[in-house]
Protein backbone atom coordinates (compact mmCIF):
# COMPACT_ATOMS: atom_id res chain seq x y z
CA UNK A 1 0.00 0.00 0.00
CA UNK A 2 2.75 2.31 0.98
CA UNK A 3 4.48 1.35 -2.13
CA UNK A 4 1.37 2.25 -4.08
CA UNK A 5 1.08 5.63 -2.35
CA UNK A 6 4.68 6.22 -2.95
CA UNK A 7 4.21 5.52 -6.60
CA UNK A 8 1.27 7.84 -6.93
CA UNK A 9 3.16 10.60 -5.25
CA UNK A 10 6.26 10.10 -7.34
CA UNK A 11 7.25 13.38 -8.92
CA UNK A 12 8.87 11.55 -11.83
CA UNK A 13 5.65 9.82 -12.78
CA UNK A 14 3.67 13.06 -12.55
CA UNK A 15 6.25 14.82 -14.57
CA UNK A 16 6.24 12.09 -17.20
CA UNK A 17 2.47 11.92 -17.38
CA UNK A 18 2.19 15.66 -17.50
CA UNK A 19 4.70 15.90 -20.29
CA UNK A 20 2.97 13.21 -22.31
CA UNK A 21 -0.41 14.85 -21.91
CA UNK A 22 1.02 18.21 -22.84
CA UNK A 23 2.85 16.68 -25.78
CA UNK A 24 -0.31 14.93 -26.95
CA UNK A 25 -2.29 18.13 -26.59
CA UNK A 26 0.37 20.04 -28.46
CA UNK A 27 0.46 17.43 -31.20
CA UNK A 28 -3.31 17.45 -31.65
CA UNK A 29 -3.45 21.21 -31.67
CA UNK A 30 -0.56 21.61 -34.04
CA UNK A 31 -1.71 19.12 -36.69
CA UNK A 32 -3.40 21.84 -38.76
CA UNK A 33 -0.25 23.93 -38.40
CA UNK A 34 1.90 21.02 -39.58
CA UNK A 35 -0.39 20.31 -42.53
CA UNK A 36 -0.24 23.98 -43.39
CA UNK A 37 3.56 23.92 -43.10
CA UNK A 38 3.77 20.88 -45.36
CA UNK A 39 1.46 22.42 -47.92
CA UNK A 40 3.35 25.68 -47.81
CA UNK A 41 6.68 23.89 -48.23
CA UNK A 42 5.32 21.90 -51.18
CA UNK A 43 4.00 25.00 -52.92
CA UNK A 44 7.30 26.81 -52.42
CA UNK A 45 9.20 23.78 -53.73
CA UNK A 46 6.99 23.74 -56.83
CA UNK A 47 7.40 27.46 -57.36
CA UNK A 48 11.17 27.14 -57.01
CA UNK A 49 11.24 24.17 -59.35
CA UNK A 50 9.15 25.90 -61.96
CA UNK A 51 11.29 29.01 -61.62
CA UNK A 52 14.30 26.78 -62.13
CA UNK A 53 12.61 25.35 -65.22
CA UNK A 54 12.19 28.89 -66.48
CA UNK A 55 15.75 30.04 -65.82
CA UNK A 56 17.63 26.82 -66.41
CA UNK A 57 15.42 24.11 -67.90
CA UNK A 58 16.37 20.69 -66.56
CA UNK A 59 19.41 22.26 -64.97
CA UNK A 60 20.73 23.40 -68.30
CA UNK A 61 22.41 26.76 -67.94
CA UNK A 62 22.51 28.40 -71.35
CA UNK A 63 25.31 30.80 -70.36
CA UNK A 64 27.82 28.24 -69.16
CA UNK A 65 26.42 25.48 -71.41
CA UNK A 66 26.52 23.13 -68.45
CA UNK A 67 23.95 20.78 -67.00
CA UNK A 68 23.36 19.88 -63.39
CA UNK A 69 20.92 17.17 -62.30
CA UNK A 70 17.62 18.52 -61.06
CA UNK A 71 14.61 16.71 -59.66
CA UNK A 72 11.78 16.13 -62.10
CA UNK A 73 14.19 16.73 -64.96
CA UNK A 74 11.95 14.82 -67.34
CA UNK A 75 9.32 17.50 -67.04
CA UNK A 76 11.56 19.83 -68.98
CA UNK A 77 13.97 17.55 -70.74
CA UNK A 78 13.98 14.44 -72.92
CA UNK A 79 17.00 12.74 -74.50
CA UNK A 80 17.64 14.31 -77.85
CA UNK A 81 15.61 17.32 -76.87
CA UNK A 82 16.55 20.93 -76.43
CA UNK A 83 16.13 23.09 -73.36
CA UNK A 84 12.34 22.94 -73.41
CA UNK A 85 12.23 19.25 -74.18
CA UNK A 86 11.47 19.64 -77.86
CA UNK A 87 13.74 18.09 -80.51
CA UNK A 88 16.91 19.94 -81.36
CA UNK A 89 17.37 21.45 -84.80
CA UNK A 90 13.67 21.08 -85.46
CA UNK A 91 13.64 24.18 -87.59
CA UNK A 92 16.69 23.35 -89.67
CA UNK A 93 14.91 20.94 -91.98
CA UNK A 94 17.80 18.62 -92.53
CA UNK A 95 17.12 15.46 -94.40
CA UNK A 96 18.85 12.33 -95.64
CA UNK A 97 19.06 11.63 -99.33
CA UNK A 98 20.34 8.40 -100.89
CA UNK A 99 21.00 7.03 -104.36
CA UNK A 100 21.06 3.30 -104.97
CA UNK A 101 22.70 2.07 -108.16
CA UNK A 102 21.28 -1.35 -108.99
CA UNK A 103 22.98 -4.15 -110.87
CA UNK A 104 20.61 -3.65 -113.78
CA UNK A 105 21.73 -0.04 -114.17
CA UNK A 106 18.67 1.43 -112.55
CA UNK A 107 19.16 4.28 -110.09
CA UNK A 108 16.73 4.56 -107.25
CA UNK A 109 16.58 7.75 -105.23
CA UNK A 110 15.05 8.06 -101.84
CA UNK A 111 14.93 10.43 -98.91
CA UNK A 112 14.07 10.62 -95.27
CA UNK A 113 11.56 12.09 -94.60
CA UNK A 114 9.89 9.83 -97.07
CA UNK A 115 6.94 11.58 -98.61
CA UNK A 116 5.43 8.18 -99.20
CA UNK A 117 5.12 7.56 -95.45
CA UNK A 118 2.06 9.65 -95.17
CA UNK A 119 0.83 8.92 -91.70
CA UNK A 120 1.40 11.98 -89.58
CA UNK A 121 3.34 10.64 -86.62
CA UNK A 122 5.21 8.02 -88.66
CA UNK A 123 6.18 10.72 -91.13
CA UNK A 124 7.32 12.92 -88.26
CA UNK A 125 9.44 10.20 -86.70
CA UNK A 126 11.07 9.30 -90.02
CA UNK A 127 11.72 12.94 -90.83
CA UNK A 128 13.42 13.22 -87.47
CA UNK A 129 15.50 10.17 -88.41
CA UNK A 130 16.57 11.97 -91.59
CA UNK A 131 17.43 15.03 -89.54
CA UNK A 132 19.50 13.06 -87.02
CA UNK A 133 21.33 10.83 -89.51
CA UNK A 134 22.31 13.74 -91.72
CA UNK A 135 24.39 15.14 -88.85
CA UNK A 136 28.13 14.65 -88.70
CA UNK A 137 28.37 11.17 -87.21
CA UNK A 138 30.10 8.49 -89.34
CA UNK A 139 28.90 5.62 -87.11
CA UNK A 140 25.34 6.64 -87.67
CA UNK A 141 25.86 6.94 -91.43
CA UNK A 142 27.33 3.45 -91.56
CA UNK A 143 24.48 2.04 -89.48
CA UNK A 144 21.94 3.63 -91.77
CA UNK A 145 23.69 2.15 -94.79
CA UNK A 146 23.55 -1.35 -93.24
CA UNK A 147 19.90 -0.77 -92.47
CA UNK A 148 19.21 0.15 -96.09
CA UNK A 149 21.25 -2.75 -97.48
CA UNK A 150 19.31 -5.25 -95.41
CA UNK A 151 16.09 -4.05 -96.96
CA UNK A 152 17.16 -4.17 -100.59
CA UNK A 153 15.91 -7.07 -102.69
CA UNK A 154 19.31 -7.56 -104.39
CA UNK A 155 22.86 -6.34 -103.60
CA UNK A 156 23.48 -2.95 -105.22
CA UNK A 157 26.51 -1.84 -107.22
CA UNK A 158 26.84 1.39 -105.34
CA UNK A 159 25.03 3.39 -102.70
CA UNK A 160 25.57 7.08 -102.02
CA UNK A 161 24.35 8.81 -98.90
CA UNK A 162 23.84 12.56 -98.87
CA UNK A 163 22.95 15.02 -96.15
CA UNK A 164 20.49 17.59 -97.33
CA UNK A 165 19.69 20.90 -95.74
CA UNK A 166 16.59 22.71 -96.72
CA UNK A 167 18.21 26.08 -97.14
CA UNK A 168 15.47 28.62 -97.61
CA UNK A 169 18.32 31.01 -98.36
CA UNK A 170 16.37 34.09 -99.20
CA UNK A 171 14.04 32.81 -96.56
CA UNK A 172 10.63 31.46 -97.01
CA UNK A 173 8.59 33.85 -98.98
CA UNK A 174 10.65 33.83 -102.14
CA UNK A 175 10.72 30.05 -101.85
CA UNK A 176 6.99 29.95 -101.51
CA UNK A 177 6.55 32.14 -104.51
CA UNK A 178 9.23 30.43 -106.51
CA UNK A 179 8.62 27.93 -109.23
CA UNK A 180 9.47 24.30 -108.65
CA UNK A 181 12.84 24.64 -110.41
CA UNK A 182 13.88 27.60 -108.32
CA UNK A 183 12.77 25.80 -105.22
CA UNK A 184 15.03 22.88 -105.98
CA UNK A 185 17.99 25.23 -106.03
CA UNK A 186 17.35 26.09 -102.42
CA UNK A 187 18.25 22.57 -101.34
CA UNK A 188 21.89 22.05 -100.42
CA UNK A 189 23.23 18.50 -100.35
CA UNK A 190 26.65 17.10 -99.56
CA UNK A 191 27.97 13.57 -99.79
CA UNK A 192 28.27 11.61 -96.55
CA UNK A 193 29.82 8.47 -97.96
CA UNK A 194 29.79 5.85 -100.68
CA UNK A 195 29.25 2.12 -100.50
CA UNK A 196 31.05 0.04 -103.08
CA UNK A 197 28.96 -3.05 -103.80
CA UNK A 198 31.78 -4.94 -105.56
CA UNK A 199 34.24 -4.73 -102.69
CA UNK A 200 31.57 -4.29 -100.04
CA UNK A 201 33.32 -1.30 -98.53
CA UNK A 202 31.97 1.88 -97.12
CA UNK A 203 34.04 5.02 -97.62
CA UNK A 204 33.01 8.04 -95.60
CA UNK A 205 33.25 11.24 -97.57
CA UNK A 206 35.59 12.91 -95.12
CA UNK A 207 38.22 10.15 -95.45
CA UNK A 208 37.95 10.24 -99.21
CA UNK A 209 38.51 13.96 -99.18
CA UNK A 210 41.68 13.38 -97.17
CA UNK A 211 42.97 10.93 -99.73
Amino acid sequence: MRLFRRRRRSAGVYLYAGRWIRLRKWLVESVPLMVFGLQFAVTMAIVLHLAMALVAPAGHFPISESRVPTPFAYLTWLPGGNAIGFPQDATRHRFLFFKIFGQDGAVVEGSLPDHGAYHLIRYDRWSRVGEVVSRDNPTLHRNMLLFLLERLPSPPLKVELYAGVWAPGDVALPVLQASKRERERSIAVHLLGTYDGLHRTWTPARERKGI
Partner: peptide, 24 residues
Protein backbone atom coordinates in the same frame (compact mmCIF):
# COMPACT_ATOMS: atom_id res chain seq x y z
CA UNK B 1 6.95 6.51 -72.75
CA UNK B 2 10.36 7.37 -71.26
CA UNK B 3 11.57 3.91 -72.27
CA UNK B 4 10.79 4.69 -75.90
CA UNK B 5 12.52 8.06 -75.58
CA UNK B 6 15.67 6.41 -74.25
CA UNK B 7 15.20 3.45 -76.59
CA UNK B 8 15.97 5.75 -79.49
CA UNK B 9 16.28 9.49 -78.86
CA UNK B 10 16.59 9.92 -82.62
CA UNK B 11 12.84 9.61 -83.01
CA UNK B 12 11.75 11.73 -80.06
CA UNK B 13 9.25 14.37 -81.10
CA UNK B 14 7.86 17.42 -79.39
CA UNK B 15 4.68 15.55 -78.66
CA UNK B 16 6.64 13.06 -76.53
CA UNK B 17 7.78 15.88 -74.26
CA UNK B 18 4.18 17.01 -73.87
CA UNK B 19 3.03 13.46 -73.13
CA UNK B 20 5.56 13.19 -70.31
CA UNK B 21 4.30 16.47 -68.91
CA UNK B 22 0.65 15.47 -69.07
CA UNK B 23 1.11 11.97 -67.66
CA UNK B 24 3.34 13.14 -64.81
Amino acid sequence: DLSYAHGNPGVVLSIDALVVLALA
